[in-house]
Simulated scan of single mutants.
Amino acid sequence: MTDDTPEPAAIQAIVHRGVPLAAAWSIEVLAAAGGSATCRLPWQEALLRPGGTVSGPALMGLADVAMWAALLGVTDGRDESLTTSLTIHFLRRLPPGPVIAESRVLKRGRIIVGEVLIRSEGSGDIAAHVTTSWAAVVPRA
């Protein structure tokens, strides 16, 4: 972590400004440094789908935000890269409750490749595995 790397709260503020849906869902950035990030999606009944499980769109949104948080942690909080693909494999149902996403940058260049693991808070069982690629964009001045 460089001296210029923003604290998780600062990265969370950047994420909430850049992705208003992340603010509406109250996504928290718990950690972001060295190409990795951990984000938390608090429990909200509105994010359930029939059958009482956390919805796929909520998990995809959380994964996308978690990957951006990881990028913000290695770009001193200045990143305007764009998601070009996101593939999610749902491995098990997530019951109602908070959700944790752990992201990491696997490769940086013109194309950025990353991975996100999603689980219920307090569980070690991976519920979804995400691979994602991003087009690197130089931040505007």
Rank of each mutant, 00 (worst) to 15 (best):
L59Y: 00
T5W: 07
R108L: 11
A9F: 03
D64P: 09
A23E: 12
G122I: 09
A32Q: 11
L117W: 02
D3H: 13
V54Y: 07
L91S: 04
W134R: 09
A46E: 12
L41G: 05
H89R: 15
L117A: 15
S123P: 00
D4L: 14
R49E: 14
R40L: 15
D4N: 12
S85A: 15
D4Q: 15
I14E: 02
I27Q: 06
A136M: 07
T2V: 06
M60I: 11
A136Q: 03
L94Q: 00
G73Y: 09
S85Q: 08
R119F: 08
C39T: 07
P50N: 05
L94C: 09
T84F: 00
G34M: 12
A136T: 13
A101T: 11
L94D: 02
T87M: 02
I111H: 09
V116S: 03
D76R: 15
V105S: 03
A23I: 01
L106I: 15
A58W: 03
A9G: 06
A135G: 06
A128N: 06
R92M: 07
G109Q: 13
A58F: 09
R78D: 14
I27K: 05
L21P: 00
C39A: 08
A63P: 11
L47P: 01
A46R: 14
E45Q: 12
A66Q: 06
A9L: 10
V65K: 01
